[in-house]
Design a protein around this nucleic acid. Structure first.
Lengths: 229, 229
DNA sequence: TTCATAAATGTAATAAATACACTTATAATT
DNA sequence: AATTATAAGTGTATTTATTACATTTATGAA
């Protein structure tokens, strides 16, 4: 046997698809586009693209994410490989699904028009092409696991946020109400929040203090993990 | 745009590589083969193979696992996609890594000779081709997470086992000693073990009771998850 | 009968999780 | 200036889970 062996094996189209999550203060949402090529043209889909032979699979995902959002340094991780033979009626295409978290306000209206994209609440998704609905379901489960042991979820919030916004985020992800006092105590005990001398006065007369993250402690917890809920 | 679009995209070789774990009662081990083709011929590697265009990626992993072990219904899950451009000097090959758990005694000596394969303790791995060492490292981390929330680890033990064997398994996976009384209490409180009326007398005069799993409860916990350690 | 060996077992102390309701600050209204 | 409406902010007691720790028991071999 020799290097020649590689030559006679089947080459396959490899795609990446990105589940992009956002949070609007109340609902967890996914960013979808209307697919612009057949098969499935005009149907809602995750943003995706093919992996080129001169780029890594992760780089392909970054490229796709950047193309859609204009953002770099997006929180992103591999989710799963969808590899069924018949998953794409257009041909044999395997897809690596990624999930990504962005601040919903970082995504501009211009881009929504340009890419024919739209945020959908997870409990009201439209019909999706191929196995994209499966991907989103899996991504949501993975997000729940992830935020229970890592501070990644914070990526969905604006830089400054109130404790009630943070709680609403966890409630949206876990799909369950949480006790305000217990939540506050626990999150503050992690020592990753800095209380600012500013208040957010949009949602109450009294106003709620804004917090931001202590990036150093955040990094440690990101690596080491934490036990959140 | 049309279906034609698919035609002009790059096709890529897709491989699967399997991290196969076994447990000999004391050490966690990985099954490695001597690679039989260039590049890297003769160097140790994970068992792997290319995905054919008429099989799913998961089926390719099953095929590879079955070819090496002779076993079907192996516990197996996707680990990660290794997708760097230069990871395989023989060409552009992306690899989906899987980790699998088998009972070490199910793997026969004949197969070891036939495939030029060998069990290596995880703390004494030989040099490996490409990024296979990374895969094993990641697989071990994933195994640690997995057994802390799912009863999957039991797949590494024979059908009948003693509590001390089970504890030794967890100690090997976590790489840390555990308290015998606390361990026993906790594992029994999960109510997934059936105490048999048989003793294993190999390792002590007194003999230790054998246990086996209650498969129904196992299935429930497998889905719902548990909080183990 | 004694000895050596690993198996089996319980309790007290500490830490973490949960359940639960009133007071406070403020802007808007009168 | 006083009142009202609204969400923010805060503490304690109870239950549950985790940890630390040492002696007795069963048995085969000598």
């Amino acid at each position: 046997m020799s290097i020649q062996q590689y030559k006679f094996r089947d080459k396959i189209l490899v795609a990446v698809d990105c589940i992009i999550f956002g949070f609007d203060g109340l609902h967890l949402k996914a960013l979808l586009v209307k697919r612009d090529l057949d098969p499935g043209k005009g149907i809602n889909a995750l943003m995706g693209g093919f992996v080129n032979s001169n780029e890594s699979v992760n780089d392909a995902a970054k490229r796709v994410l950047n193309k859609l959002t204009g953002l770099t340094d997006i929180y992103m991780e591999q989710l799963t490989c969808l590899g069924d033979v018949e998953r794409d009626p257009g041909g044999r295409v395997i897809s690596m699904a990624y999930f990504a978290l962005i601040k919903i306000d970082d995504y501009s209206n211009n881009l929504m028009i340009e890419h024919n994209s739209k945020w959908y609440p997870l409990d009201a998704l439209p019909k999706l092409v191929f196995d994209h609905a499966d991907m989103i379901k899996l991504a949501k489960e993975r997000l729940q696991e992830k935020v229970s042991t890592h501070p990644s979820g914070f990526t969905l919030l604006p830089q400054k946020f109130t404790l009630q916004q943070l709680q609403a985020l966890y409630e949206a992800i876990y799909e369950t109400p949480l006790d305000k006092r217990n939540f506050t105590r626990k999150i503050l005990s992690l020592n990753i929040l800095k209380k600012l001398n500013e208040k957010e006065t949009f949602s109450s007369r009294k106003g709620a203090f804004l917090y931001e993250f202590d990036k150093k402690k955040y990094k440690i917890l990101e690596k080491e993990g934490l036990k959140f809920l």
